[in-house]
Design a protein around this nucleic acid. Sequence first.
DNA 1: ACGATGCTTCGGTTACGATCGAAGTATGAA
DNA 2: TTCATACTTCGATCGTAACCGAAGCATCGT
Lengths: 228, 228
Amino acid sequence: MKEGPDIAQIGALIGDPARANMLAALSGGKALTATELAAVGGITLQTASTHLAKLEAGGLLTQRKQGRHRYFTLADEATALLIESMMGFAASRGHLRHRPGPKEPALRKARICYDHLAGDYGVRMLDSLVASGAIDAIGEGLSVTPKGESRLQCIGIDVSCLKSSRRPLCRSCLDWSERRAHLAGSLGKALLSTFFDKGWARRAAGSRSVIFSPEGEKQFLSLFPLEA
Amino acid sequence: MKEGPDIAQIGALIGDPARANMLAALSGGKALTATELAAVGGITLQTASTHLAKLEAGGLLTQRKQGRHRYFTLADEATALLIESMMGFAASRGHLRHRPGPKEPALRKARICYDHLAGDYGVRMLDSLVASGAIDAIGEGLSVTPKGESRLQCIGIDVSCLKSSRRPLCRSCLDWSERRAHLAGSLGKALLSTFFDKGWARRAAGSRSVIFSPEGEKQFLSLFPLEA
DNA sequence: ACGATGCTTCGGTTACGATCGAAGTATGAA
DNA sequence: TTCATACTTCGATCGTAACCGAAGCATCGT
């Protein structure tokens, strides 16, 4: 049976706890240094260095050096999607990292997934966009309606401009905490950046959580109401 | 960093070569016995037994005993999708199982992916269905048009009947050999069974290849022509 | 030039898990 | 009952890879 691609290699790469923690941290979309990644992996810098070298050789990471720092990021969106889909799968099988206790409620509420909004708020946003007819959900796919295009324009997002990029405009991404889809793709990214720009939300310090300001939360909830 | 689901566990499960080979074999959709799986993994029966126990405990497999045999299958479609998406990812990073030589051309041409058709022919089928207007491809999603529904009726597939099942009708599945989408979901399954029923094609003995008869190939190609 | 910081490489230890031989259990056939 | 097949469990071996201490580069600040 020497046919087909080798799943075992990438499986083994993701299969080490230290590496898995690093990848999960990087799926927050931010570039991190080797030292930071060593911390999230719970290992020393030397060990982290060898791990990172393996991940890079395996095509999961890219690094760029900047001064005396080395910043690591996930290789591309496909890698981020793989990590996130494995998280969804693991959650569905009850493989939780420690105890299934209360966990981080803030993380379930709103967090970053690569470059877009996930968690309860991410799912709510997509639900609301679909319910109001701004996005068409056909089968597994999503597309922006003309109505939605003008509505997004009001929020300050130029959809036609996003369309010209090579990256898909809308993509649905399975949310591991909600087990439902939220909005990814360039539109998902644009929406989240808009929230940041308007000061409605900000990233938490050392985590993937997204924290809304009281005013931002009010705006967000009125902009994306739950269907009646 | 004790947040979120544990990717490392399933990563490690898939990360062992013997287990990965077993899973790849099972993603052919057929139930296999422990002895058969030991063969594809290249290990003894005892070792295979412990591997299979781990995979089952991890929620990747289910077994049902039948007489003195034990038949193993992938736990569900989500598992099959995960395996296949990892294959796609591995292929995109050039992780091939041995040498990237000529490989199995039959496997690239047509093979089973869980329960539907993949490979060159699988991709061609979806392309043709989209080009002829039988299936709408919106963003990442697929849906059958009224026109397509009547056309499929002629082949002998009752779409409205398939719609009533809980499983999604159309789903696109990334093909690792072609690096393009082919048709999965209940419609993909129905199409492949139809080909089998009509005697157009059959499964190869110990492989995931699908072999078309000369007559079946002719019918298939005329039914799903390439766009001009 | 000097030390400090960020990271890699080397060497050696350690631990985990994959592996198989042998023995044990279950089902079916004679 | 007896033997054969299909599989699991036990026990022991062995190899690999994760790990860290220490030393080696590279870059920056002063």
